[in-house]
C-alpha cells in the first residue's frame, strides 16, 4: 500500500498535487467548452439550418484522435498544459452543444409565449426562463463531457508528461511498477465519479422543482394505473 502512493520524484508532484493538476486540466476545458457552447447552441436554436452542419463539424473534430491533436498543437503551444486543454475543449462541444440545444428546445412553446406576454425581453427570457428550464439537460451534457475529459487528460502523458495522473502510467512502465498504473486508473476513475456526483448535486440544488428519482418511470406507471 505504501508503494501505491509512492510517487517517483521525476513527476515533480505529490499524489494530491497530481490530482489538483488533473482536475485543472480536465475541468477548465469543460468550462471553456460550456462558454463556447452556450452562444453556439443559442445560434443553432435561432437558425435551425445551422444545427446539422455544426453537429457534423463538432463530430468530425471529436473524431480526431487526441494524440494527433496534441502533436499538431505542439508546434504552436509547445509541450504545455494548454496543448492538452485545447483539444479537450473542442471535444466537449460535441456533447454540450446538442445537450443545450435539446434543453432549450424542450422548453414548451406555451411557457415562452407566457413569458413574452408578461413582458420579458428576449435576453431576460433566455436567462430567466429558457436557461433554468434547460438546466437538467445541460447538466446531463456536462456530466458526460466532464467524465470523458477527466479520462482523456491521461493521454497528455505521451507529449512530455502533460497527463497529470496519466504520467503515473509512464513511470509504471519505465520502473515496471504496476501499482502506479493501478493508482492512475483508480484515482482517475474515482475523480470522475466524484465530480459526476457533484454535478448531480448541483442539478438538485438548481432545480428544486424537479421531482427526485426517475420522473419518466413514475408518469408512465400513473398513466397505466387506471
Amino acid at each position: 500500500m505504501n508503494r501505491f502512493f509512492d510517487i517517483p520524484s521525476d513527476l515533480q508532484h505529490s499524489w494530491l498535487g497530481l490530482i489538483g493538476l488533473h482536475l485543472r486540466e480536465a475541468l477548465l476545458p469543460v468550462l471553456g467548452g460550456l462558454l463556447l457552447a452556450l452562444p453556439l447552441a443559442q445560434l443553432c436554436v435561432r437558425l435551425r439550418w445551422l444545427y446539422p452542419p455544426v453537429l457534423w463539424v463538432t463530430t468530425v473534430l471529436y473524431a480526431i484522435p487526441s494524440l494527433a491533436f496534441f502533436v499538431v498543437l505542439i508546434d504552436y503551444t509547445g509541450q504545455t498544459e494548454l496543448t492538452v486543454m485545447i483539444p479537450l475543449t473542442v471535444y466537449s462541444l460535441v456533447v454540450l452543444v446538442p445537450a443545450i440545444v435539446d434543453g432549450v428546445r424542450s422548453v414548451p412553446q406555451e411557457t415562452l409565449a407566457a413569458a413574452t406576454a408578461m413582458g420579458f425581453g428576449p435576453v431576460r427570457r433566455y436567462v430567466q426562463v429558457q436557461l433554468p428550464i434547460a438546466v437538467p439537460a445541460i447538466i446531463a451534457g456536462l456530466r458526460v463531457a466532464t467524465v470523458s475529459s477527466i479520462s482523456l487528460v491521461s493521454v497528455g502523458m505521451l507529449i512530455g508528461n502533460q497527463g497529470a495522473l496519466g504520467n503515473l502510467l509512464h513511470d509504471a512502465q519505465i520502473y515496471n511498477r504496476p501499482e502506479l498504473a493501478w493508482n492512475s486508473v483508480l484515482t482517475t476513475a474515482a475523480l470522475a465519479v466524484l465530480v459526476d456526483a457533484l454535478l448531480v448535486g448541483v442539478r438538485v440544488l438548481l432545480t428544486p422543482w424537479m421531482p427526485s428519482g426517475s420522473g419518466a418511470t413514475r408518469t408512465r406507471k400513473e398513466a397505466t394505473a387506471r
Partner: peptide, 30 residues
C-alpha cells in the same frame, strides 16, 4: 420493463469514469 434505470445509470457512469488510456496500459502490464 422500465426497471433498473438507476442501476444502469450508475453502471454507465462507472464505465465512463474508467480512463481508456490508463486501462490500456494497466491491462498490458497485468
Amino acid at each position: 420493463y422500465g426497471k433498473g434505470g438507476n442501476a444502469l445509470t450508475l453502471l454507465a457512469t462507472a464505465a465512463r469514469a474508467l480512463p481508456t488510456f490508463g486501462l490500456l496500459v494497466l491491462i498490458v502490464m497485468v
